[in-house]
Design a protein around this nucleic acid. Structure first.
Lengths: 195, 195
DNA sequence: CCTACCGATCGGTAGG
DNA sequence: CCTACCGATCGGTAGG
């Protein structure tokens, strides 16, 4: 504290990260502010100097993960790649999110239901929008005869859900490397779609 | 009540069914016994004439779904079918569970973490056992050259997770029929595995 | 960042 | 199946 150099990890970030771990382990509702405070190393009341409410913590965790997904997709749509390559990129991105941002990704996919309004509606509409954009890419693959005829919505759900399932891998012994995992996922999911 | 004919739906079953709906909607921790009692139409204290604890309700819901999965697998292993046919049957069974037993299936896959010991350990070990049996079938498919070379564990996780993702379909407009859904899932997942 | 504390709600019990 | 109630814990605030 002797210098005014900007600290990269603020106390608020520490709280969010600890909360992300606990929300994944026990769920949002089963995690108390006292549990969280203990994990951070302060009293429960002191948390409120850095955050406004338990609900706000969930919002920040969910949307910082959702924003990353949206940014990746936005960048991808400007790229000059084939639609099949785009789908593959999306699979790889989500597998990597699951690896590198495990806690946040899990909280986003499992605890979003506990968001309060208007954030709940906002999240649902963002997610629907995201899924629809993926559907459009799958649709393009079908029309270009790169994919077999399949319902795009079902294909997108299958891909996104399959990635979510990697949480079990994450908890297990990890005899499989992330790279192996990524290749296996792409193989199974993409070749199931190709003609 | 004038006859002693065995009633098929006991009050306890009604409580379990209502609890299953609420646990799916709001999660186990966020559902209070007062919420549940209101949905059943009695006072909270009266619930305890039919069940012993909130925890016991979760146990019964989770294990009545898990038992169905185990029974299907047990029956399947005695049948004289090819390993590829067995994998297809497992996919169809899980898709149908998601359709017909939506609430229980969802509670089993999402709320098992809130089981108390020794039920939590029991569930985890049952699930590991289930997954390992599926892995063995996939392994057989690979050795018989019916499937391409893939890590069985990843394939099994992908299949089971993909089915879980149908919850979003279940909540949506349902412009897709259950039969279409089942065929699309089988197509995507099985042909992604076949040589 | 802490101590002290608030009203609300929790799962569950006693007794009828 | 109800009324009445228990101790514990919840998210959050006041004041320093």
């Amino acid at each position: 504290m002797s210098k005014n150099a900007p600290k990269k990890t603020t106390k608020k970030e520490i709280i969010l990260d600890k909360a992300s771990v606990m929300f994944r382990e026990k769920g949002f509702s089963a995690t108390s502010m006292r549990d969280l405070a203990e994990s951070v190393g302060i009293e429960a009341a002191s948390l409120y100097n850095h955050i406004q409410s338990k609900s706000q913590i969930l919002q920040e965790i969910v949307f910082r993960a959702a924003d990353d997904c949206n940014q990746h997709l936005e960048k991808l749509t400007t790229e000059n790649a084939s639609c099949t390559t785009k789908i593959e990129s999306i699979i790889r991105f989500h597998v990597q999110m699951m690896m590198n941002r495990f806690e946040d990704y899990h909280v986003m996919t499992h605890e979003w239901i506990h968001l309060s309004e208007p954030h709940l509606s906002s999240f649902i509409s963002q997610r629907r929008n995201y899924v629809q954009q993926l559907e459009a890419i799958v649709e393009e693959c079908i029309q270009k005869k790169e994919f077999k005829t399949i319902i795009p919505y079902v294909a997108v759900l299958t891909i996104l859900s399959a990635v979510r399932g990697l949480e079990f891998w994450h908890r297990s012994q990890k005899k499989i490397t992330p790279a192996e995992l990524e290749e296996n996922m792409v193989t199974h999911l993409i070749s199931g779609l190709k003609k």
